[in-house]
Computed example of a mutant assay.
Amino acid sequence: MNTRIDFYKASPDAMRAMMALEQRIAQSGLEPPLVELVRLRASQINGCAYCVDLHSRDARKAGEDERRLATLSVWRETPFFSERERAALAWTEAVTLICQTHVPDDVWDLAKPQFSPAEITDLTLLIATINAWNRFAIAFRKLPA
Rank of each mutant, 00 (worst) to 15 (best):
V103N: 04
P79Q: 08
V38N: 05
A70P: 00
D109Y: 03
L37A: 09
W75N: 07
Q23M: 08
D105V: 11
D58P: 06
R86F: 08
D65F: 04
A87Y: 08
F81W: 10
G47C: 04
R41V: 08
E77Q: 14
V107C: 14
H102D: 13
P33K: 12
C99N: 14
T71I: 02
D53V: 09
I98G: 03
T92L: 01
A111T: 15
V103S: 05
G63Q: 13
Q27E: 10
A62G: 03
D106S: 13
A94L: 10
C51I: 03
S82N: 07
R68H: 00
Q44Y: 04
S28P: 09
Q100I: 02
P33F: 01
A94G: 11
A42D: 06
P32M: 05
R76H: 13
A90N: 00
R24W: 02
E64T: 03
E66H: 07
V35N: 10
V107A: 14
A90I: 00
C51M: 02
S43A: 09
E77T: 14
L30G: 07
R67Y: 02
C99K: 14
D65N: 09
P32G: 07
P79R: 11
T78W: 07
A90Y: 04
E64N: 06
A62K: 05
A88S: 04
G63F: 13
L30P: 06
A49L: 06
N46C: 01
Q100K: 15
P32Y: 11
D105Q: 15
H102Q: 10
D53W: 10
A90D: 02
R39H: 06
C51F: 03
K61S: 08
V38W: 00
I45N: 09
D58W: 04
